[in-house]
Design a protein around this nucleic acid. Structure first.
Length: 274
DNA sequence: TCCCTAGCCTGAATGC
DNA sequence: TGCATTCAGGCTAGGG
């Protein structure tokens, strides 16, 4: 399940593999994946050179000669690079064939991923319209703004952190890890949190995501990077997927509940609801 | 305006 | 063994 660290790892991998290549042709096997005009997607990309790879939250950006592809991997999206022959694969949906004979293939078992093509001038407004929050770094993720936003939130903190408006990049796995490390119960309402708790959540968000980027992301079920390699962050998980196992801090068995429709792991002793 | 939930989608796991 | 059901979850649209 690609969250920010997994998308960043994919970005770094693709940067090494496809920068400077020119698109010769485009194949789309699953048209619903393309959110902007399909004919334009097929017609406008040939001739474009991959100038840079970027990322905003969980979105992957391909900066071309004069267009930008915005790709979201959602649940199980993956990119595979083939220097020459492309194998037949059931879940391959979009192919970018390059002039040197290589191909970049987007695969997605659940077909949840999306791709859009914009002109560069519209990229900022695209993310503004989606209200994507700041990147989880010391420089961008400012504590005062976070505190103010939390005070207005009547949502459970887990739901608030997942909706990408307070901070970009957290998904179900890392949000459980962040709240466990910050010792905050996932069902606590945003506005009920103390300044100290909010500060801890911000600090752990930055720390957990930075650590996960360093580890190449987490490999849960199906994620792998652009080279088909697994990340190792799952070895550092302290709470996600540990239902019934003892808490590393107090030994209390870790519980799993449904919160906002999402499987949610927490320690009932360290993360008090009241 | 904010919050919650269903729906999208398919493979793996589970139950019978 | 084989079929049916449940679960996993990022994001969006729609309803309250």
């Amino acid at each position: 399940m690609p969250e920010l660290p997994e998308v960043e790892t994919v970005r770094r991998g693709l940067e090494k593999l496809i920068l400077g290549k020119t698109i010769q042709s485009v194949e789309v096997k699953y048209p619903k994946m393309i959110q902007t005009d399909l004919d334009a997607f097929r017609q406008d990309l040939p001739g474009q050179e991959i100038r840079a790879m970027g990322r905003r939250g969980k979105y992957l950006l391909f900066y071309l000669t004069d267009l930008v592809i915005i790709s979201h991997l959602r649940m199980e999206g993956k990119y595979f690079f083939y220097p020459d022959e492309v194998p037949l694969r059931k879940h391959a949906h979009v192919f970018l064939h390059f002039t040197d004979g290589s191909t970049l293939v987007y695969e997605d078992v659940r077909k949840f991923g999306t791709m859009e093509v914009l002109v560069p001038v519209l990229v900022d407004s695209y993310f503004l319209a989606k209200k994507i929050g700041p990147e989880p770094t010391e420089a961008d993720f400012k504590e005062p703004a976070f505190q103010v936003a939390l005070k207005k939130s009547k949502k459970p903190i887990k739901s608030a952190l997942l909706d990408q408006k307070l901070v970009a990049g957290l998904g179900n796995i890392y949000v459980d890890e962040v709240l466990y490390r910050a010792k905050v119960h996932p069902a606590r309402l945003g506005q009920s949190l103390t300044a100290r708790e909010a500060k801890a959540i911000r600090k752990e968000t930055i720390a957990v995501l930075a650590q996960a980027v360093e580890k190449g992301g987490s490999t849960i079920r199906s994620y792998s990077n652009a080279f088909g390699e697994d990340g190792t962050m799952q070895e550092e998980h302290q709470i996600y997927g540990k239902t019934g196992q003892p808490c590393l801090r107090c030994g209390t068995p870790i519980e799993k509940i449904q919160l906002g429709g999402r499987g949610t792991h927490f320690c009932p002793h360290c993360q008090k609801e009241n």
